[in-house]
């Protein structure tokens, strides 16, 4: 997957301490639904949306992220898109909710390595200690001047989602920032 803008920066950044990879295409949805409907929603779709704010649940190839009291992101492998489209369309007929396909609005980065959290702290002031930001925690926040969705996938790995138009800016930023490590 390529960005619209052609800039002279590699798609992947591989370093000893930190690596940044642009993620493959994904199926992404923004879902607004009342938290009281979650049990029924799970019965209908089989998707387990986490109840607690800023947490995520991963099952097989689908990850559900809770970013607000009534707002979730559903991110899945691109091959599950047709199936999820149908499931969520079915849900939108039954519940008072909003389902928005944002598969191509966002791009994702995977940041891995011993200094992954340090790279994030270059542009984001959140506490990245494992106690304060445990594996599976997710939040929307700001990285430098771009709004991002940040999720910790492992002790030394993170996933960052941002709007496609912010992609080249962030990638450029990661490359420049990682030169210091």
């Amino acid at each position: 997957m390529l960005f619209d803008q052609a800039i002279d920066i590699p798609e992947t950044l591989k370093g000893d301490a930190v690596s940044v990879t642009l993620m493959e295409e994904r199926a992404r949805y923004n879902l607004r639904i009342k938290s009281t409907d979650l049990t029924e929603f799970k019965k209908l779709t089989g998707l387990k949306l986490p109840r607690k704010i800023n947490t995520s649940s991963a099952a097989k190839d689908v990850t559900c992220l809770c970013v607000g009291p009534d707002e979730w992101f559903v991110i899945a492998e691109a091959k599950s898109k047709a199936k999820l489209d149908k499931l969520l369309a079915k849900a939108s007929n039954k519940f008072v909710c909003s389902v928005t396909d944002i598969s191509h609005r966002n791009v994702g980065f995977e940041i891995t390595g011993a200094k992954a959290s340090r790279l994030i702290n270059v542009g984001c002031p959140l506490d990245m200690a494992i106690e304060a930001f445990p594996v599976g925690k997710v939040t929307r926040t700001i990285f430098e001047s771009a709004a991002i969705l940040l999720r910790r996938t492992g002790e030394e790995s993170f996933q960052i989602e941002c709007w496609r138009s912010f992609g080249p800016y962030l990638r450029d930023f990661f490359v420049r920032a990682s030169r210091d490590f």
């Binding site: 704010i53 959140l126 926040t141």
Partner: peptide, 17 residues
């Protein structure tokens, strides 16, 4: 960094958010 407690997230978050 100046921090504000969000009652929904139930944690202190940086002011820029």
């Amino acid at each position: 960094m100046f921090e504000i407690h969000c009652p929904y997230c139930d944690e202190k978050r940086p002011e820029i958010e």
